[in-house]
């Protein structure tokens, strides 16, 4: 591992995470990893400073003052740790947008935003490695490699360029966030807000980079025979997002095919997703269609880019 020191104009890094019923001890473990990564990144001159903000979508706050006091004291490499209780489940896109607005009030100067799931643990050099592609102003997003289960989407082995980046852990320059006006919270609740953001960034001329040497641990488990088995709730939000992605990115053919298939499905969560899409249509709440020439949108089976293998 080589450490690239003293990036030009190294600025402040803000880290955002949205909580929903997370265990305090796992959150603390995540903070300990971030603290060490921040320590090394600041020492290497990659960032000037690092702060952390949690948005809490839980019915009752996950973190209390005593916990926050203790973690602030124990992890001095993070300049501030904020906790914003949403008092409602805002989902992913709106949760992050709310934190972004809050950040603009709390902190004036920041160069980049790291969005990560609250159960993600950063490798010590993860921030250093994530920041390396940012020297190129055309980079709009940098995604970390996840352990123990790597995301199987394809990326270019020489450039690292990929179709989209997951915000399980991704670094985004602040100017890109401003230019794209954050995430599309009107359309997406829990899934695909990151695919949508990636594709809008690409439409704006930015490149999405997968950085295999920036490693994070995202606690995922495997079912029997090594299959990944999403819950019915995950399948519902995923199906709903799939319909909206196809519609928004001007692939009416795919949207109609999915809608027909979901509506006729035996699975209640798929029928529910179809009904929700119909309701939005009736209420005129479908998103404005973009990428009509299909410049960036890529629908490969159930995926949003080519995958190396299936999980």
């Amino acid at each position: 591992m080589s450490i690239k020191k003293n990036r030009q104009n190294a600025g402040h890094l803000r880290v955002h995470s949205v909580l929903y019923g997370n265990e305090q001890n796992r959150v603390e473990q995540s903070i300990a990893h971030l603290n060490r990564a921040a320590d090394l990144a600041v020492a290497a001159g990659v960032f000037k400073s690092v702060s952390l903000a949690y948005g809490d979508s839980s019915p009752r706050a996950c973190l209390d003052d005593e916990f926050l006091g203790a973690v602030r004291k124990a992890h001095p490499a993070i300049t501030r740790i904020d906790h914003l209780f949403f008092d409602g489940n805002l989902g992913s896109a709106k949760g992050h947008n709310t934190l972004i607005v809050d950040a603009q009030v709390q902190e004036t100067e920041w160069e980049a935003l790291l969005i990560m799931n609250p159960d993600v643990m950063l490798a010590p050099d993860a921030l250093i490695e994530l920041a390396r592609p940012l020297d190129d102003p055309h980079v709009g997003m940098v995604e970390a490699r996840q352990l123990p289960i790597e995301h199987p989407k394809e990326y270019h082995k020489l450039t690292g360029e990929t179709g989209w980046a997951t915000t399980a852990c991704a670094l985004i320059p602040m100017n890109v966030i401003r230019e794209l006006d954050g995430f599309d919270q009107e359309t997406f609740f829990l899934y695909c807000d990151d695919v949508d953001f990636s594709w809008r960034a690409r439409l704006a001329g930015y490149r999405i980079i997968y950085q295999p040497s920036a490693v994070v641990f995202h606690d995922k488990r495997l079912g029997a025979n090594g299959q990944w088995a999403p819950t019915s709730s995950e399948q519902y939000y995923s199906a709903e997002a799939a319909l909206l992605m196809a519609y928004k990115f001007s692939r009416k053919d795919i949207a109609e095919r999915l809608l027909k298939s979901f509506a006729a499905s035996d699975l209640p969560h798929l029928r529910k997703a179809a009904n929700e899409f119909d309701r939005r249509m009736e209420e005129g709440r479908l998103p404005k269609q973009i990428d009509v020439k299909g410049a960036v949108a890529e629908f490969v089976g159930d995926y949003y880019t080519k995958h190396r293998y299936s999980l």
Binding site: R145, H156, L158, T159, Q211, S213, V215, L222, R308, Y309
Partner: peptide
């Protein structure tokens, strides 16, 4: 336990690393 095939990789902007290239095999 499951097995998975991996290979070395190094992009233009990354340090030496690895990437998975196969599904999980029981």
């Amino acid at each position: 336990n499951v097995a998975q095939t991996w290979q070395p990789v190094k992009t233009g902007v990354s340090s030496r690393s690895v990437r998975s290239i196969g599904s999980f095999e029981a």
